[in-house]
Design a protein around this nucleic acid. Structure first.
Length: 559
DNA sequence: CACCTAATAT
DNA sequence: TATATTAGGT
């Protein structure tokens, strides 16, 4: 049967249409059916995601509306891009070029405006072919095998950056024509004048980067290794170094200064923020008391304390036992040459990093209070697992991937195991830790987040960054990319791919860079203000989450 | 060398 | 602005 379908290709192409608007969905479905595609519809993104996750090979193409109550179409797009390598077409009445661009930057292969007409859907199958072509180079081993091409390269460049896969796929190679020749500039022009394309760190690329960093462990993440893990063609060590530099800066920023109160303040919105300006970077001072928590909790705004998992993985590692992770992918880089520009701005909102309390818990003896708080978060997290990234799943894949990866094993990784990465900081073994298992939260942090100066007043941001207190830094933060702030995260959590582990691979490293970073670097917070009692926080957060959930259900379900 | 950080250039 | 490049140090 598969063959039959294949033969008549466009016919029978399995399309998943997602739109919360029944009418639109109906119309779209009709058109799709007219084209003889095999259509499946979903009225909300979550349902769609679940359908997709159930069997990654059940669909050939996804058409998703952009604005949906439960999850933004871009988010869905992003998730789909990471978890399965399916072409996604955005579908919206909004013809704002920015939106279109955003779609493209998030990986959409097309953007259809409503109302759609038959002619448009008649040719969408081309995207399936195209995707296959780029992301696949031969091989088609049944199941997955998605090459996770989260990163489509798009070399937007003057004279096309080439893109011929011919010969080696070395990554660097650019330039080098120089022969010797005298020096002295004259650099310019030589026939093959290709300006050195600049790498555009798209969200997808950044994700990859972060995944690599996570796998290595922040302390072992050096340009060269990262580069190897990423395995993106044409990316150079320098590119990575530069990006890493920036990334570290970002981590530092959030882990040290700013975090704490700043975050709190942000979360609190108006309330007292004054306090935070004074905090000193390191532990010492910071104080933040429970009431803070309470207060902001009450206002319900901290949706993202636990960030969202979103990203997660890209393709499998050792597919065939090779130790090295990825290979595959068609990663090509996207270079900037002209048009791209502001898009990044909004797209790259966040660093995808993961944060785990585990580290804290496991690592040396951090001060008890911190642990307590951390635990509180953990508990909270587990209690509300539906909204949070499921801890178990995302556990350290990296670890497994590197070492051996046995699926089922997670139960407890040897603490040492952790060490694998960052946690190398000795210790752990003292067991001081409550041995909760090493779950962790994975979150995304704004990529572009790195700049955000604390001033994002922007609603969607607030929550980003870490949540307060010295340990705050360990709490993942998230934030949305979209302006309208949806509750995506929560969803992400719920959707979480549980079923197949392939999905979780990468990203979920067990330790998040942040902490690791800070731990390594300096911090050891001795801080104290935290008076324990994470409980209150917990409650507050729980409430908040409930609210969100409620809202989500309402809007999602009813509509 | 590979790396880091900071400064500076594009 | 984001990324690249360079400088100077480990």
């Amino acid at each position: 049967m598969m063959n039959d379908l294949r033969d008549k290709f466009p016919i029978g192409m399995r399309v998943l249409a997602v739109d919360d608007d029944r009418t639109c969905l109906k119309i779209l479905e009709k058109l799709l059916l007219k084209c003889q595609y095999h259509v499946t519809t979903a009225q909300n993104a979550i349902t769609a995601l679940n359908l997709l996750r159930e069997n990654k090979n059940n669909f050939d193409l996804v058409i998703s509306n952009v604005h949906m109550p439960d999850m933004d179409g871009f988010k869905l797009l992003e998730l789909v891009g990471l978890e399965m390598d399916l072409p996604v077409i955005m579908f919206s009445a909004n013809d704002d070029p920015k939106m279109v661009l955003k779609g493209i930057n998030h990986g959409a292969c097309d953007y259809l405006l409503k109302p759609v007409i038959l002619k448009e859907v008649q040719t969408i199958w081309q995207h399936v072919i195209r995707k296959k072509k780029t992301s696949k180079r031969s091989n088609h081993d049944a199941a997955n095998s998605d090459s996770g091409n989260g990163i489509d390269s798009a070399v937007t460049g003057s004279s096309d950056q080439n893109e011929r896969p011919s010969s080696s796929r070395k990554r660097k190679e650019k330039n080098e024509d120089d022969d010797e020749e005298n020096e002295v500039d004259h650099d310019n022009d030589d026939p093959t004048a290709q300006k050195k394309a600049r790498v555009v760190w798209t969200p997808a690329l950044h994700r990859k980067f972060v995944a690599a960093v996570n796998q290595l462990g922040i302390d072992k993440a050096v340009p060269k290794k990262i580069l190897d893990l990423m395995n993106v063609e044409k990316l150079t060590r320098e590119n990575v170094a530069s990006h890493l530099q920036k990334y570290r800066l970002y981590l530092k920023r959030i882990s040290e200064g700013e975090n704490q109160q700043a975050n709190m303040a942000a979360l609190l919105g108006s309330s007292s923020d004054t306090s935070y300006s004074g905090m000193t970077s390191l532990g010492g001072s910071t104080q933040f008391h429970n009431n803070h928590y309470k207060s902001f909790a009450s206002n319900g705004s901290m949706s993202s304390i636990f960030n969202t998992p979103t990203n997660v993985n890209m393709h499998g590692f050792s597919s065939s036992g090779t130790p090295l992770l990825n290979h595959t992918h068609n990663n090509q880089l996207k270079f900037q040459s002209a048009m791209t520009r502001d898009n990044l701005n909004d797209v790259l909102k966040m660093p995808i990093s993961s944060a785990g309390l585990d580290q804290l818990l496991h690592s040396k003896e951090s001060n008890p209070q911190e642990k307590q708080v951390a635990e509180g978060y953990k508990n909270l997290a587990s209690q509300n697992s539906q909204y949070l990234p499921s801890l178990e799943n995302r556990r350290c894949n990296d670890i497994w991937s590197n070492t051996m990866q046995l699926p089922g094993t997670n139960s407890y990784l040897p603490r040492e195991g952790f060490g694998h990465g960052s946690a190398s900081h000795k210790d752990n073994r003292n067991a001081a830790m409550p041995h909760t298992d090493p779950h962790e939260f994975c979150n995304n942090v704004p990529f572009q987040g790195w700049d955000n100066n604390h001033n994002n007043h922007d609603a969607s941001y607030h929550s980003s960054h870490v949540v307060g207190s010295s340990i705050g830094s360990m709490i993942p933060a998230v934030n949305a990319v979209e302006p309208e702030e949806n509750l995506d995260y929560n969803y992400c959590g719920s959707l979480q791919m549980k079923r197949d582990r392939t999905t979780e691979l990468t990203e979920g490293s067990s330790f998040n860079p942040h902490q690791a970073y800070m731990m390594n670097n300096q911090m050891k917070f001795q801080n104290s203000g935290i008076s324990n009692n994470p409980g209150s926080l917990e409650d507050a957060v729980r409430d908040m989450i409930k609210q969100k959930q409620l809202y989500a259900n309402l809007s999602g379900g009813t509509m």
